[in-house]
């Protein structure tokens, strides 16, 4: 199977005064293209650190992380930013929309940072807003939307550059179960369209939806299924 991303012996060590914290300890995981992964584990197990590394906003202190066969250790800060913009879509637990921008503008933020911005950006953003069911809300501010609607905006924003990987960090953590299952349905749908989904969660029930499961414990791989 073709790999979209791969962790090889990845470690992430924090130095906090005299104490050395090994948040990730020599983790090796192959992520196949189009797979739906749930990344699970108790709090403090290194899930968030792993997600930061996978999302290229943090660098491993040891080992290598490959995205589309490209070693991220060889990339400088600008290239890493380009990679994030083009290949990775982020979805956060607290939505992280920019409050002063409208829904449509929020969806279009990643376009600002792409080289050679697309002329059909507006049309694409409108299509995505329609797809996540917010076509009639595109001029609203995030504060005027419910949690579920905000997360839909975030999903649309994550999709605007058509990335291959979607990274979701407890994406349903702040939502009620009804809304959460709607959001999860969107993820399944995206997965069926060929997107690789990496979902960080601590809820067993969500983990069961995923095709593959990675469990972390104390920064080490506890289980790969």
């Amino acid at each position: 199977m073709e790999l979209i991303a791969e962790l090889r012996d990845v470690s992430r060590v924090y130095q906090m005064g005299d104490v050395t914290v090994r948040a990730l300890d020599r983790i090796s995981v192959p992520f196949g293209t189009g797979e739906y992964w749930a990344i699970m584990g108790p709090s403090g197990s290194g899930k968030s650190t792993l997600l930061n590394v996978l999302g290229c906003i943090d660098r491993p202190t040891g080992g290598s992380y490959f995205v589309e066969e490209c070693n991220t250790s060889d990339l400088d800060d600008d290239d890493l930013s380009r990679l994030r913009g083009a290949s990775i879509g982020f979805i956060f637990q607290s939505f992280n929309l920019i409050p002063q921008l409208s829904v449509l503008e929020n969806i279009m933020v990643p376009l600002l940072y792409q080289d050679g911005s697309a002329s059909d950006g507006l049309a694409r953003a409108e299509a995505l807003a329609e797809r996540v069911g917010l076509a009639d809300r595109i001029l609203h501010r995030p504060s005027e939307l419910s949690g579920g609607q905000q997360q839909r905006v975030a999903i649309a924003r994550a999709l605007i550059n058509n990335p291959k990987i979607i990274l979701a960090d407890e994406a349903t953590g702040n939502l009620d179960s009804q809304t959460a299952s709607e959001i999860l349905d969107i993820f399944s749908e995206l997965n069926s369209e060929g997107k690789t989904i990496l979902l960080v969660t601590h809820e067993e029930s969500i983990g069961e939806q995923a095709q593959r499961v990675l469990c972390l414990k104390d920064g080490k791989v506890d289980l790969i299924d």
């Binding site: 930013s81 913009g85 929309l97 933020v109 990643p110």
Partner: peptide
Amino acid sequence: TREIGIRRALGARRYH
């Protein structure tokens, strides 16, 4: 600061 973090995660380079 948080907005800056969001923008960086969405692909903004330092220069942006």
